[in-house]
């Protein structure tokens, strides 16, 4: 729950400006990007740090790799988080 997980924005929706389709370690789900405004608003190809279905900050690819390595080191907790994300129904 507390884990910030990195994901890459793969699609924006014209009819839902608050959502983006994001790829997190191969899992693609809708993520709310309503907390990122102005210059922070992500476009396709940007990396974001996600907490419980919401993007809290835009990050660069290097930081995304570092965050991912941290999470993979955590093991079970990250697996649980990914499994939870895979079950997510955000719309």
């Amino acid at each position: 729950m507390c884990l910030g997980i990195p994901g890459e924005v793969v699609e924006l929706y014209d009819d839902r400006p608050d959502l983006a389709k994001v790829d997190v370690s191969g899992v693609r789900r809708a993520i709310n990007i309503g907390l990122l405004e102005g210059d922070d608003r992500p476009v396709v190809g940007d990396w974001i740090l996600i907490h419980v279905g919401f993007a809290l900050s835009k990050i660069d690819e290097e930081e995304a790799a570092a965050a991912l390595a941290f999470l993979e080191g955590i093991g079970q907790a990250y697996d649980d988080e990914l499994a939870a994300l895979a079950d997510s129904l955000i719309e």
């Binding site: 729950m1 507390c2 709310n32 419980v52 279905g53 939870a84 079950d87 997510s88 129904l89």
Partner: peptide, 25 residues
């Protein structure tokens, strides 16, 4: 749930129930 937004979806799918989200953090 993974996200409070998932709770919201459950509420929409279950109009005859009351859905509570245990908000922590």
């Amino acid at each position: 749930v993974y996200s409070p937004l998932d709770s919201l979806k459950i509420a929409k799918q279950n109009p005859d129930k009351h859905v509570v989200f245990m908000a922590i953090g």
